[in-house]
Design a protein around this nucleic acid. Structure first.
Lengths: 204, 204
DNA sequence: CATAAAACCGACCGATAGTCGAAAAGGAGG
DNA sequence: CCTCCTTTTCGACTATCGGTCGGTTTTATG
């Protein structure tokens, strides 16, 4: 018999692995408890529902990403680079390939969406801080920071996480980012060099 | 006994109503066949699965919206107004309130996402046409039209369909649209007057 | 050692999407 | 009207799944 909190973490870890490898909808509670070698009742002693468990799993995933973002903010990186670093740290792109694949799968909409929503909610304040720093340093010039940052995240998510992108997508993303934040042309063009060319579709 | 295609349309119509009023996930096949007064087997004679039926329903919904968009394109409306008209015709905002509520419900993620994806895929070419017209008339100035239009749709969807928006959101949306398409400042500010103020959160 | 709290068990439940073999209806030709 | 084939309909049945519940075992406490 395990002590409460420890067992919960154990279950969370198992669920995390299974959700990512087979998707949330395709992972049954029965499978989870089979792998954990516990009974139905025990599972529901720790989680009120399967969906609530998903929420916990997501929270777990996000925590580590927020930590990374925090380090970036505190670093002495140039502001534009900070922005990009946070945006990329945020997306599971830096995780292993199977994770990205799992999230791309259409049957994982629920999980995908919950992560996206939570991530945005959590990251907007962080990124806003950085943009503010940029404004103070004269690199950016804009109002309504939170709203702009949100758009940035939405777009970057759609462009780089949810689908295959082309060179044109990058070009427009750079252009849009600069204009959205009121930066000089060229401020963000370093992004282009960061992109892993292998991820890209051949542009036509 | 009904002739094939007619029955299918009848079922599609029933499903459409029910999906919108109670959500896809909350509508069981049993409920659908009860309302249609047919047996399980008959249902599965027409649709291989519930999800495939959803796809058909969505296709039905989209067709009508594309039609509207086509009329807008052919009209003599000013180009900026055309853009907005298409964007708003696209979103179920013009449908009745309960429909919007249904789509907002988190349990409708699947349907919501499928619509969004399909809609963007279908509308990007249409909107691109209009932007091109704007460029020819000297109202807009930009390259990579399709990519920019896509961003516009993604943003407008997130801002106006998926959540409650504030005045700041509108301001940023207008600013971003103008810059994204390379329009003069003020070109899109008429949007502000179109917004149904009752839909808005009180801005702080 | 007694008692209470925490952790665990698994049979059971209700709902749901989907299957299947057979029956009824419709139509075409004789 | 009868025959034969196709289209459409039927509804009982299945498998799976998330979740419940009453009761048992383990652990901590004093």
């Amino acid at each position: 018999m395990k002590k409460g909190e420890k067992r919960k973490q154990e279950l969370l870890k198992i669920a995390y692995d299974m959700f990512l490898s087979q998707g949330y909808e395709n992972t049954s509670v029965d499978e989870i408890i089979a792998r954990a070698k516990i009974a139905k009742g025990t599972y529901y002693y720790y989680f009120p529902s399967k969906e609530k468990m998903l929420e916990d799993v997501i929270e777990m995933m996000i925590e580590s990403e927020v930590e990374t973002a925090g380090q970036v903010i505190g670093s002495d990186m140039p502001v534009p680079q900070k922005i990009v670093a946070i945006i990329t740290s945020i997306k599971p792109a830096e995780a292993e390939q199977p994770i990205k694949d799992a999230l791309m799968q259409p049957e994982n909409v629920l999980m995908h969406n919950k992560i996206r929503k939570k991530l945005i909610e959590v990251v907007v304040p962080l990124l806003s801080e950085v943009v503010e720093e940029g404004i103070n340093k004269g690199i950016f010039a804009c109002d309504n920071i939170a709203e702009r940052v949100r758009m940035l995240l939405i777009i970057s998510n759609d462009t780089f996480n949810d689908r295959i992108f082309t060179e044109s997508d990058i070009a427009v993303f750079i252009d849009m980012t600069e204009k959205l934040l009121g930066a000089d042309k060229g401020t963000m063009s370093f992004i282009y060099d960061l992109i892993d060319k292998s991820e890209m579709e051949v542009s036509k």
